[in-house]
């Protein structure tokens, strides 16, 4: 679990995480939001349903796959939040157009 070092002073955006609106720093990656909210696991695998969470934070491990705005298999660590973004944890093989 992670915590934020100091109160964020900069720009914030509202995103919808698992159906709930939350205000988060504009510079955050989706993975940072999920870790800050402790929403682990962020996905279960397509192969066995095993729980997984972000690992590398630099776009090379593909463990942070997540559904963003209805599109599955997005790299949470490489996508910055934007106003109105809808984020959902991914269960198994996400339908690309669910």
């Amino acid at each position: 679990m992670f915590r934020r070092l100091q109160t964020h002073q900069g720009k914030v955006v509202t995103v919808c995480v698992e159906g709930n609106d939350v205000r988060v720093p504009a510079g955050d990656s989706v993975a940072a939001v999920m870790l800050a909210m402790d929403l682990l696991p962020t996905r279960t695998t397509a192969v066995s349903g095993a729980p997984r969470a972000p690992l590398c934070m630099m776009g090379v491990c593909f463990e942070c796959l997540i559904e963003i705005d209805g599109v599955a298999n997005q790299l949470a660590c490489q996508v910055q939040v934007s106003e109105g973004m809808r984020i959902r944890r991914q269960h198994g093989a996400g339908d690309p157009a669910s």
């Binding site: 679990m1 100091q6 990656s29 696991p41 729980p51 969470a53 690992l55 934070m57």
Partner: peptide, 24 residues
């Protein structure tokens, strides 16, 4: 190593640099 809660140290450092997130 696949358990949520296990993370790369450099990845955690990225969280601190760019989102000011630190572990408990």
């Amino acid at each position: 190593w696949t358990l949520p809660g296990v993370m790369n140290a450099g990845g955690a450092q990225v969280l601190m640099k760019s989102s000011r997130l630190v572990p408990l």
